[in-house]
Design a protein around this nucleic acid. Structure first.
Lengths: 228, 228
DNA sequence: CTCCTGTATTTTGGATCCAATATTGATTAT
DNA sequence: ATAATCAATATTGGATCCAAAATACAGGAG
């Protein structure tokens, strides 16, 4: 097994060649979030393994991980399928995010340091650059970093992990959202407002602002979802 | 929307002999929750697979699932270990449960049917029987059914799945809690009170009661956790 | 033509084997 | 003794092979 170029593994700080399984995991995530594998698609292990130049064993373990994250579903003896979110599913994910992220933001504001604010500002700068350039992928990445920076300041690693998993499960639809110029502009503005409220340590207002931010996203995504 | 198609459900309602992987998953859960595998223990694949009379392949896939659920941790090239919850971890899990379960209860109360109340009452009857008999395992099972019955009435399958995962991650410590006669009696009483509030559709009071219920549990478990 | 049935093919599930990495233990120099 | 080094062993990671199940397909009965 040849070690591929990939180093997107965000795991432990160990400097080690990634295992085939970690490589496959990253590739699968990318394939799903970029739409290369589309919601509802069955995942054929043989061909996919061949394409990634690994055997089916690490592929299957990676799929189990993705199943746990809700990116794919599994039926015994029938295989894995890219998760197809219904409208209800999407709303539910955003409802749960609301519950978890509100708490994360409150805690984060309570113990916010200048370093965190600065990191968020840097992420926001990248968001604005990507938004202007129309670079959807970079924007999604920077946007995520912006929010996670704040959440992580809460000092609740499990909570952050769950939030991250929820984000993952809707990644496939996020690129759609950023595809629209108007949405990109709105994200930039809403982030600026949220950042300002964070600087002023106004937890309640920040929570409200981010709730609205999410609502805009889900409403916009709902509009382009295929009818059931 | 109780999802008639239930894509999130584990078995899709099909009556089929379990795969080795499903069998192993169940056995591992039991081994961890009953303390047969204890927090911090490394999981030796070869011997465990032999003991369960399967190869390492389905074992490893089951472990990946448990990793996603937080019951085991994983380090590349070093293997899997039964998760050892710190005090902070335990408190964090209960905090997250608070956030999610409060919402689930509110939604459940809003659409509560007599069937659900009846199912909860039946589960409670079993809790009381097991509590009297000192049957810790049966009590844990019935207790879980009691709560899940209510949560599921919320009609939010993903939310329930996450709550269930959180419960799983602390299962190893729950049996400790039920080991105490006084705790068992308190659980019975608190359930009765909660059930009464549900019958009266008093969401706020029910949420408060269940929050106190959780607090008692976490406080009691904290007391017996080994010091860091 | 439709529906069933049995068969061939595809696809997934699992077992075994080999390779890569980590751990252990002995040995030696300081 | 202690620490470093290197061989021996144990354990995990991955590839290949075979078995079991599902799907696709062809042919025949109604």
């Amino acid at each position: 097994m040849t070690a591929p170029e990939g180093r997107l593994a965000a795991d432990e700080g160990r400097r080690r060649p990634p295992t085939a399984q970690q490589f496959v995991l990253g590739e699968l995530r990318r394939a799903i979030t970029t739409g290369r594998l589309r919601p509802g698609d069955p995942i054929r292990q043989e061909s996919l393994a061949e394409e990634l130049a690994v055997s089916r064993v690490p592929l299957r373990e990676a799929l189990k991980t993705l199943q746990g994250e809700g990116l794919v579903t599994y039926q015994a003896h029938r295989g894995y399928f890219v998760e197809r979110l219904s409208l209800d599913d999407l709303r539910e994910v955003y409802l749960i995010r609301e519950l978890l992220e509100a708490e994360a933001v409150r805690r984060a504001v309570a113990r916010l340091t200048d370093e965190v604010v600065e990191a968020a500002e840097q992420a926001q700068a990248e968001v604005e650059r990507a938004a202007a350039a129309g670079d959807v992928l970079a924007m999604a990445e920077a946007n995520r970093r912006f929010h996670m920076t704040v959440f992580e300041a809460a000092g609740l690693p499990r909570l952050v992990r769950m939030i991250r998993t929820l984000w993952d499960s809707t990644d496939a639809y996020r690129s759609v959202y950023y595809g629209e110029e108007a949405n990109r502009r709105r994200v930039v503005e809403e982030h600026r407002a949220a950042l300002d409220l964070l600087r002023r340590r106004d937890a309640d207002a920040a929570v409200r602002a981010l709730a609205a931010h999410r609502t805009h996203a889900v409403t916009s995504i709902e509009a382009v979802l295929p009818p059931p």
